[in-house]
Amino acid sequence: AREMGVIAAMRDGFGFIKCVDRDVRMFFHFSEILDGNQLHIADEVEFTVVPDMLSAQRNHAIRIKKLPKGTV
Rank of each mutant, 00 (worst) to 15 (best):
F16K: 02
F47W: 02
S31P: 07
H29I: 11
D43H: 00
M26C: 12
A61L: 03
V49G: 04
A61T: 00
I33R: 01
N59T: 12
Q57V: 07
F27W: 12
H60Y: 11
I41K: 01
G13T: 10
D43K: 00
K18W: 11
T48G: 00
F14C: 10
G15H: 03
V49K: 06
H40C: 13
Q57C: 09
E32K: 14
I17P: 03
F47H: 02
L34C: 15
D52C: 14
I64E: 01
V50Q: 11
V24R: 15
G15V: 02
V24D: 15
D35C: 04
A61P: 02
L39Y: 05
V72R: 04
H60K: 15
G5D: 02
D12P: 04
V72H: 02
L54Y: 13
M26G: 05
D35L: 03
I41P: 13
L34K: 09
V20I: 08
M53L: 11
A8P: 07
V72G: 08
I7Q: 00
E46G: 01
R22M: 03
R22W: 04
R63N: 14
K65T: 07
D52L: 07
L67P: 01
S55C: 14
S55Y: 09
D35P: 10
H29A: 12
I41S: 01
F16Q: 05
L34Y: 07
I17F: 00
L39G: 01
L67R: 03
I64P: 01
R63F: 00
G36V: 06
E32V: 00
H40A: 14
R63L: 08
H40L: 09
D52V: 08
D43F: 05
R11Y: 15
S55T: 13
Q38C: 12
V49H: 05
L34G: 08
A42F: 13
A8E: 15
I7G: 01
I64H: 03
K66C: 04
V49I: 09
V49Y: 05
Q57H: 14
L34S: 10
I33Y: 02
N37Y: 13
G13D: 14
S55P: 15
D21L: 07
A8M: 10
L34M: 13
P51R: 13
K18G: 02
F27T: 10
P51E: 13
Q38D: 12
R11G: 13
I33T: 04
P68R: 10
D43S: 01
D43L: 00
I41R: 02
F30D: 08
I7W: 02
V24C: 15
N37E: 12
G15C: 02
D21N: 10
A1P: 09
I62R: 06
K66T: 00
I17V: 04
G13C: 03
V6A: 11
L54H: 14
R58K: 12
D35W: 02
E3N: 10
S31Y: 05
F47Y: 06
E44R: 02
S31R: 14
Q38T: 13
V24G: 12
D12N: 08
F14S: 08
F28L: 06
A42Q: 09
G36T: 09
D21E: 12
D43E: 00
F47E: 03
L67C: 07
V6I: 14
T48E: 11
I64M: 01
G70W: 04
S31T: 14
